[in-house]
Structure formats: structure tokens, C-alpha cells
Design a protein around this nucleic acid. Structure first.
Length: 705
DNA sequence: ATAGCCAATGTG
DNA sequence: ACATTGGCTATG
């Protein structure tokens, strides 16, 4: 059929306009004008290119065959980026095509013939000879698309960075020979640590959930795991929640291995450098990657280890369709390649607890004695006890916190964690902490700037004389005081001590080992040089715990552990004061430094209540009619629950008809794949019926109120 | 999505 | 009789 393709060869289309390119174009046009349209000279051996087009529509999630013009025969190899004409019309009688738009795609296969009965359009252009979509990467992206009920094109967009000519023109570097297996280093603090490294170096694939001991050794420990894997002749991939963490592992890898064995893949170096490094991975020049979530697709061949640090951090979830999660993509890769798995952090997620419970992964944790040796002393204090000292009282510090800070400040820096950045004008009852809500619509009340009159943030009604619906109290307080104001107040409470801030507008990587108050929002805590912080105060802990989220407890503990891990061990005077009720489970888990136990308990509870990750869920969000339409089309797997729909709050300032509904679908463990398939089919059916009002589909949504 | 095709509708 | 518009369809 390709032989009968009568399409004339299309002149190369410039993707960059320069004088030379334009001249070439003119020449080509002239030639076309002179000669009558003639049969395309197509490649003789494998004249058909199977192409995945870069369009995310779910009913277009299929391959399209194109003929390969002779001039592109040698270039249009599997994996290369191409440009094709898409959506044109066959001119009657001639079987010739015209119109359509040029879109990008990738060759996935060269074939002798097509099973498409109609005439094939020719490839318009090969954008670069670089085979970026390798068979392994294609298989992975397909698996991710299926798992998340998304399209291959959407996933490819996340997996393959935009091309950069300059970087591509550089010749590939030869890979270094594997390094020697490292000694265990601080892994010997873990009973199973040295054995884990030995197994990696020997080419085995152990799988572990690693509860990291407090301190700053984890980048070195991850680096050793990478080095051990490289020593076995295999590749290693480590994902971290942010650029700062990537920089730490990068430094540890450099120190352990020197340069040339690995690359850091994060947004920081800019698109060209990022592509250069990605290419170094794709070309096999380096065998180890430390990166942020986009690196979850890094095209490492012969993968020996996939690792993720702090998998509870929300940065590991990609916010773009189809919303893949770094940990889960790594687990897919491990299942496909048989690679070893290391899921590490100070905290343990319920997802990791489930891997332990099923026996799929083994725990890798310090013995009690090691924990005692590494962890600071942790004290709780209820937040009704306010320090008598006037300044401390103004800074809302309980006596114990105030004393701990004052003493520790003679020894070194003190970390103060406050749970959210900026001023948060949400109000709560001083007495019982219940949130102040509108009597009409139950929306949150907010303080109007000067006058002090309360208004509902949802319906805008003023609330003249508020009293607490729970306890009848009449006094309010701001639910969370932001980092800036906390810093101001602490500055007044400790006038002789410098105050530094780390948060949204400026994250500090580290602070010197000198007396200072370091006010930070969770996740932005700087590392304290030297021995670590002398103390940490975890303020307004109740606000973290009261978030209306299934994960509130887990998330609060994760954030506290992250801060507490930066404090000196108890023997060196390290102290943590958490301002929260001691009876609460996450608080107890912090005091006992028992993240794994907490996660196991939490998992048990989720199992009882039928919550994820024990059951699998999907969230459908969209306009009510669209959600109902999709719901009507879906053929749910047996035993599926439909929860909702409930109205989710319309984006601020939008009108009523832009209100969104959300439905949660819940299936038993093991039915997740069936649910994804069913959703994808329903979505495709909707689009085929031209119901274009969008519905967002999220598998395993990270936040489900 | 999006371009192209056709039929229905509107206009001179 | 012809132009304009809206719905429908396939995309190689």
C-alpha cells in the first residue's frame, strides 16, 4: 500500500526561520512548481512508520501509520521526534491529501506494511535523529497512562523534555567504568544496612522501606546505595522532593564517586542544561540520576535501583494530567525491570506501611538504641500554658518552649517551625479551638482588616456578634499566625538574638552554628551546620492536626519529624518542644520517635474504614452535568462504591454555573487497574459523543478531605 | 482539538 | 442564487 501512495514529497518545513532555511524553502518550492506532482519516493525496505501523535485526546490514544519518504528513510528510526500532517482530507478521485495541521509525534516502529486500509500520508519532517522514545520508555509511559486512566501523549509530555539543538549537537560522552562497591559507612547504624548494600552491589534486588535515623546522614546513605548499585554494573535512580534535596544528594554523590557517574535532574539549571543532562542519561553516558519528580521517567537502561526520599512530600505528585505519583511510578518501574527499591524518609507513609504489611518490602530501620542515640529529647506542652514573661507571652510561647529556647540559644541556633506561611486570617474559638463559621452557609469567617467586623469568606455576610457554636465562647484568635509575624514577635521576645526566616520568599539551605532563631515553614527548614540545631519549637501544632484531610495526622507527624531530625541528639543537649496535646496519636509517635508504628496503625484504621491505599480510589471532578454524564457511561468493576457527588467549592470569583461536583469511586484492593480501564473507556466514549465539557480523573487522589 | 464537509439558514 | 453559520465527523 505504501507503494501505491501517490502523495508528493513535502518540502522540509523549517522550524526555525533563518536566511539559509528560507532560501532552501524557496528552492524547494520552485522545484515543486516546475515538476508535475509525482509519486513519492518512499523507503523501500520498511516504508511505514508507526507514529504516536502528541495529542492528549483519549479517543486518539492510538498509533497512526505514515509513509516514509525516501529522503527520511535513514532518519525516521524508532524513537525519533517527527512532525506529521494530521486531520487533513483526502481529495476525491486523486487519493491525495491536503490540509490538516502539522503536529509533533514520535516514531514507535518501522514496518513493512500498514494494516490501515486507506492511503498513508507521508512523514513531513524528522525533527532530530535522537531516538528519545526508547522501547523501555515507551513501555513505561504506556503502563503509567493505563494505571492513571490517561493518554500516552499526556505521559510522554511529562517524560520527554523539550528538545534543545545545541545540547543535542554535542557528542555523547563515554560512560565511566563502574566504581568499586562502597563500604557501609553510616549504614552500619542499621542492623540490615550493610546487608542491603551488599545485596545491591552483588546485583540482587532487595526492596526496603527505610525509616531514616534523625540527622543529616541520609544524603550520604543514599549515595552509598547508588554507588553499590553502580558497582553491580546497573543504573540507579533517586527521586527527591525538591531542588534543595537534589543538591544535597548531588553533593554526596560527587564526594563519594567524583563527577561523571551521575547527573542531577531538577528544574534549577534551566531547560537547555536539563536537556543536556537528560540526553546524557538517554545516551547511556551516565548511569545514575538524582532528580525531582520529573526524573521519575529518566530513561536509564538496566535499572538496578529505584529510590525515593520522603515519599509523603506532596511534591512527589505531579499536578499535570494524568497526575502520576513518583513513588508509584518507581514501583511500576521496579515491577517491570526487577530493580531494587528503597523508599526512605524520617516518616513512613501509609502506602509504605502497606508494602511492609504485604511483605513486598522489608523494613530498614535503626534499633531502639540507635534511635535513642540520634534523636533529640522531645517534650510536649499544651498551648493553654502561656509564659509569664511579657515578651514571651506576646510571642504566644508557653513557658516550657520559652525556657527551652532561651537555654538552647546559648548553645546554637534554634529552629521555630510555624505551620503556614503568611498571615492566615481564619479564625477559631480561643477556648475550644473550633473554627469560626458563618451561621448561614458554614463558610469560614475572616477578619476584615481594620474595623474588626467579621465576614464570611464564602457568602460575604457580616457576622456582627459571633459566639462559638461548640462552647459558647465569644473570643476569637487567628487560627495560624504566619511566619513573618512569628519572626517579629520572637525578635521582640529575644531582642539580642538574630532572627532568620526560611519560607516561600527565600528558602535557606543552611544556617551557621551560631545562636539565632530560625523561623521556617514546614519543608523549608535550613540545615544547621555543625552539630545541628540546639533546639526546635514546633508551634501551632494543633492547626496542622485540624486540617480537614484524611492525611492530617500523617502529614503533621511527617513535618514535625522533618524539623526534629535537624536537632542535635539528646546527649548533646538537643531538645524539641511541640506545642500540642500529648494524648494525640501523632504527637505520641513523635515523642517516641516511632514513625513506622504510627503508619502501621494508621494503615489498619484505613483498612477498617475502606480508605485508600487499602482500597483504591478515583476522583472525578467537573461540572455537575459532565460528572453525571461520565458516571452514567462508566461500567464500574464489581463491588465499586460511588461516593457523592458533592459540590466542591467553586473557584473564587466564579459564577454559580461554574460550580464543580466531585464523585469518589472506590474499589477493593486489586481492582485498581480495572477501575482505571473502565474510566478510560468511559472518558473515550464521552469524547466520541462530543461531550467535551471536561471531567478531571484522578487515580489515588492525594487529598480527599 | 481542529479542519473540513454538508446542510440549514439567512440575505440580496 | 449565493454567502454565512452551525453541527457533525474523522484524524493514517
Amino acid at each position: 500500500m505504501a507503494d501505491s501512495d501517490p502523495t508528493p514529497a513535502t518540502p522540509p518545513t523549517p522550524h526555525r526561520d533563518g536566511p539559509a532555511v528560507q532560501l532552501e524553502l524557496v528552492r524547494a518550492e520552485l522545484q515543486k512548481a516546475r515538476s508535475k506532482p509525482r509519486r513519492a519516493a518512499t523507503s523501500t525496505r520498511l516504508p511505514v512508520a508507526r507514529v504516536v501523535v502528541d495529542k492528549g485526546l483519549s479517543h486518539l490514544d492510538q498509533y497512526f501509520d505514515y509513509s516514509v519518504p525516501l529522503r527520511l528513510d535513514a532518519l525516521a528510526l524508532p524513537g525519533v521526534r517527527v512532525r506529521v500532517r494530521f486531520g487533513g482530507r483526502v481529495v476525491k478521485g486523486q487519493g491525495r491529501r491536503e490540509g490538516g495541521t502539522l503536529i509533533d509525534g514520535y516514531v514507535v516502529e518501522r514496518r513493512a506494511e500498514s494494516d490501515f486500509p486507506g492511503p498513508l500520508a507521508p512523514l513531513s519532517q524528522v525533527l532530530s535523529p535522537e531516538p528519545v522514545l526508547t522501547p523501555d520508555l515507551l513501555r513505561l509511559c504506556r503502563a503509567v497512562a493505563d494505571r492513571y486512566a490517561g493518554t500516552l501523549a499526556d505521559v510522554l509530555q511529562l517524560a520527554i523534555p523539550p528538545k534543545h539543538n545545541r545540547a543535542e549537537a554535542e557528542p555523547p560522552a563515554a560512560p565511566l567504568p563502574p566504581p568499586a562497591a562502597p563500604d557501609p559507612g553510616s549504614w552500619s547504624r542499621y542492623a540490615q544496612g550493610p546487608e542491603f548494600l551488599r545485596a545491591l552491589a552483588a546485583g540482587d534486588s532487595p526492596r526496603a522501606v527505610w525509616t531514616a535515623l534523625p540527622g543529616v546522614a541520609w544524603p550520604q546513605e543514599l549515595a552509598r546505595a547508588v554507588a553499590a548499585t553502580l558497582a553491580s554494573g546497573r543504573g540507579a535512580l533517586v527521586l527527591l522532593p525538591d531542588g534543595r534535596a537534589v543538591a544535597r544528594l548531588d553533593a554526596a554523590l560527587l564526594a563519594l564517586l567524583g563527577s561523571g557517574h551521575h547527573v542531577a535532574l531538577s528544574a534549577e539549571p534551566g531547560p537547555e542544561e536539563r536537556y543536556r543532562r537528560w540526553l546524557a542519561v538517554a545516551r547511556g553516558s551516565v548511569r545514575a540520576v538524582a532528580g525531582t519528580r520529573a526524573a521519575m521517567f529518566a530513561p536509564l537502561a538496566d535499572l538496578g535501583l529505584v529510590a525515593v526520599w520522603d515519599d509523603g512530600d506532596s511534591n512527589h505528585g505531579d499536578p499535570r494530567a494524568p497526575y502520576p505519583h513518583a513513588r508509584d511510578v518507581l514501583l511500576l518501574r521496579a515491577a517491570e525491570t526487577g530493580a531494587a527499591v528503597l523508599i526512605g524518609g524520617f516518616a513512613v507513609t501509609v502506602e509504605s506501611a502497606q508494602l511492609l504489611r504485604t511483605g513486598w518490602a522489608r523494613p530498614l530501620a535503626g534499633e531502639r538504641e540507635q534511635v535513642r542515640r540520634a534523636a533529640p529529647l522531645i517534650r510536649t506542652v499544651g498551648d493553654h500554658d502561656q509564659a509569664a514573661d511579657a515578651a514571651a507571652h506576646a510571642a504566644r510561647l508557653p513557658t516550657l518552649a520559652w525556657r527551652a529556647a532561651r537555654e538552647a540559644l546559648t548553645q546554637g541556633p534554634v529552629l521555630v517551625q510555624v505551620p503556614r506561611r503568611g498571615y492566615v486570617p481564619r479564625l477559631a474559638c480561643v477556648r475550644c479551638r473550633a473554627q469560626a463559621r458563618c451561621t448561614h452557609c458554614a463558610g469560614p469567617l475572616a477578619a476584615q482588616d481594620a474595623g474588626g467586623v467579621l465576614h464570611c469568606a464564602w457568602c460575604g455576610r457580616p457576622e456582627a456578634d459571633w459566639h462559638c457554636a461548640e462552647c459558647g465562647g465569644v473570643r476569637l484568635r487567628a487560627q495560624v499566625v504566619g511566619a513573618r509575624r512569628t519572626a517579629d514577635e520572637l525578635g521582640r521576645a529575644f531582642p539580642s538574638v538574630p532572627v532568620r526566616m526560611s519560607g516561600r520568599d527565600g528558602v535557606l539551605a543552611s544556617v551557621p552554628d551560631l545562636p539565632a532563631l530560625v523561623v521556617s515553614t514546614p519543608g523549608a527548614e535550613p540545615v544547621a551546620e555543625g552539630a545541628g540545631y540546639a533546639a526546635a519549637l514546633l508551634l501551632d501544632a494543633w492547626a496542622l492536626l485540624n486540617r480537614p484531610d484524611l492525611r492530617a495526622g500523617e502529614e503533621a507527624l511527617r513535618r514535625w519529624l522533618g524539623a526534629a531530625a535537624l536537632v542535635r541528639p539528646q546527649q548533646q543537649g538537643g531538645r524539641v518542644v511541640v506545642v500540642a496535646e500529648a494524648a494525640l496519636r501523632p504527637v505520641q509517635a513523635l515523642v517516641r520517635w516511632d514513625p513506622a508504628g504510627f503508619a502501621a496503625t494508621e494503615l489498619g484504621e484505613r483498612a477498617e474504614l475502606g480508605f485508600p491505599p487499602v482500597s483504591r480510589m478515583a476522583a472525578l471532578t467537573g461540572r455537575p452535568a459532565a460528572v453525571a454524564d461520565l458516571l452514567a457511561l462508566i461500567r464500574l468493576p464489581e463491588g465499586a462504591d460511588v461516593l457523592g457527588p458533592v459540590a466542591v467549592r467553586a473557584p473564587a470569583g466564579r459564577s454559580e454555573d461554574e460550580r464543580l461536583d466531585r464523585v469518589l469511586l472506590r474499589v477493593a484492593p486489586g481492582r485498581g487497574a480495572a477501575l482505571a480501564t473502565a474510566l478510560k473507556a468511559a472518558q473515550a466514549a464521552r469524547l466520541a459523543r462530543r461531550q467535551t465539557d471536561p471531567v478531571r480523573i484522578q487515580i489515588d487522589p492525594p487529598d480527599i478531605g
